[in-house]
Design a protein around this nucleic acid. Structure first.
Lengths: 169, 169
DNA sequence: TGTTAAACGTGATTATATAACATATCAACC
DNA sequence: GGTTGATATGTTATATAATCACGTTTAACA
């Protein structure tokens, strides 16, 4: 099975298993409980390799008997996000599996507005222009959201072009 | 009256009037209707110099008899955002008046998580590392959201420190 | 002044997220 | 083994954010 990952086609049936196993290991090492719901939510996000909303994930959990109420999925997402296994895409109110779980990192995202595919790329923290501005203003940066919206290569070729939605910023 | 603007104290009773007049001019020049609701929403955002939610704005409009239903404020915000007079802060689902209305620009934001003060700063478009990554991936960036969260100088001094909320990204 | 497009008023609904509280599970310790 | 405390889950209800649909009003302009 292939799907988009960072906009490049690749076989990722193994990539899901690898990533889940990796997170499993990290949780053991840190004494965190990688429970069935948390594991399944991570899998669901890895399967898609795109941003999915909490209620979309909840629908899947519900069909599988793993929980049917919003707090179930929000708690699992909260766990996964707070430990760096999943990122929240603020511009979509949606979530995506982290490409580098465990590596403490700041990430930027390229988000396709047509298919919601998400590519994650590392980014500098504080070294850039924004960091300089912040220091000059006496502002202490704790976290940053960097999300670029556009059209991924696949959707550019797919035709039936839709106009850009109005810029957000 | 003084308030925070870019985290610096300054008199801004004039700054509100100036900005509204400036936007008024821009609308005339572009044949846009700067209606009472739209004008008032912009003023409300300028008065605060911080991010405010749509329903917070709506409460004020309601008290003034300018509209009581969500679509009223969302339509006004949609107009203001789409013409670059207001920015949406995705991380807060809230809105802030633009510091440079009319100048077509990409902006980054420093957002205080305690008082929701927002400083806007210009940012490079496409020239940086993210732009390079995007080009290499064949991704066409149309818009970018750059939001740094932290504590502003005022709140740092104000004591009663609250711990950082979990990182979002 | 008649025509048309844009903006507004309003009620309902959808989407996203959290509060509050009861129950269950698990590990540490006695 | 039983108790205890911490963490996770189940469930109901509700809060918050945003949009839809449709009819009316207003503004621009021929």
């Amino acid at each position: 099975m292939t799907d988009t990952y960072g906009f490049h086609s690749h076989d990722h049936s193994a990539c899901i298993a690898d990533c889940v196993a990796h997170v499993d290991q990290l949780c053991r090492a840190q004494g965190l409980q990688f429970t069935p719901v948390r594991r399944r939510v991570l899998e669901i996000l890895l399967e898609a390799h795109r941003a999915r909303g909490a209620y979309e994930i909840l629908d899947i959990l519900r069909n599988e008997g793993l929980g049917s109420q919003p707090p179930v999925v929000y708690r699992a997402l909260d766990f996964l996000v707070s430990h760096g296994f999943v990122h929240k895409i603020e511009g979509l109110n949606a979530f995506v599996a982290c490409a580098r779980p465990g590596e403490d990192h700041a990430a930027a995202f390229l988000i396709c507005r047509r298919c919601h595919a998400v590519a994650e790329t590392p980014t500098a923290t504080g070294g850039g222009r924004l960091g300089t501005t912040a220091r000059a203003a006496g502002f202490q940066i704790e976290a940053a959201v960097i999300e670029a919206t556009g059209v991924c290569p696949k959707c550019q070729t797919d035709g039936s072009e839709t106009p850009p939605s109005r810029a957000r910023t």
